[in-house]
Nucleic acid binder design. Sequence first.
DNA 1: CGGACTACCTTGCGCCACAAGACAATGGGC
DNA 2: GCCCATTGTCTTGTGGCGCAAGGTAGTCCG
Lengths: 126, 126
Amino acid sequence: MTKELPTTGDQRRSQLLRGVLDLCLLSLIAERPRYGFEFAEALAAGGLELVSDGSIYPLLARMERAGLISSYRAPSPSGGAPRKYYRLTGAGHAALGRGRADWQAFAGPVGRILTTTTPSTGENTA
Amino acid sequence: MTKELPTTGDQRRSQLLRGVLDLCLLSLIAERPRYGFEFAEALAAGGLELVSDGSIYPLLARMERAGLISSYRAPSPSGGAPRKYYRLTGAGHAALGRGRADWQAFAGPVGRILTTTTPSTGENTA
DNA sequence: CGGACTACCTTGCGCCACAAGACAATGGGC
DNA sequence: GCCCATTGTCTTGTGGCGCAAGGTAGTCCG
């Protein structure tokens, strides 16, 4: 009725993605030029099943506007609408490097905090 | 003018915190009862310098309302206003366990994606 | 021509970290 | 007794962003 806390991890993942989804796209683009539809696939292949295109396209647009990536169109080999490929700019490379450092500076401490307390031997009740 | 992209990692960390800050608090509480002011300290000690109380108190209130934690008041030994200590409930323990799993299921793939591409000399295990 | 498929983009919504500041309780200085 | 510094809690307004759902456009096939 009023309000339910998330019972599944789905809601959590949405929040977790926040600050790191752009880096994932950047990193994926760094490998080779990519187009929009590809990202959801690549992320799922990497272990992150999710991320509707409604999250990805606006983000790509923002990053392009910010000068981190640039785009060019190419016809789809499988028929259909032409694809819009994205490529990293110099600024994008720099941002990716910074972002990776940020992520590690964040994930390390978090992991440590989360495993600090009696995680094992399930011996607690309190 | 219109809009600037974040130049520092500070903005990013704010976003990264979403989805994991509650788990950190839960984990910290699991160690022993804690009060509000303590959390920012403990997080900073753990490597996460930040997190103003404006983020923490509302989150604690939300979690208490959700039945994950319970509180009791105790006078401050150092003079001043009484402290409000929080303790884990059974549901809180369960949520913490689930959350830890969620975090690992997320951080793993993300780390892998971010290190997939030629980070520098690019000679690692893939 | 019409349907199906590929691909891109937009709108409205809700969540939540944050900055800034108000409020409450205690103890010490005078 | 009164005032204020200290300790600590809580509230309000703001903004960014992931998401669901829906809409548009280009290409191919029957």
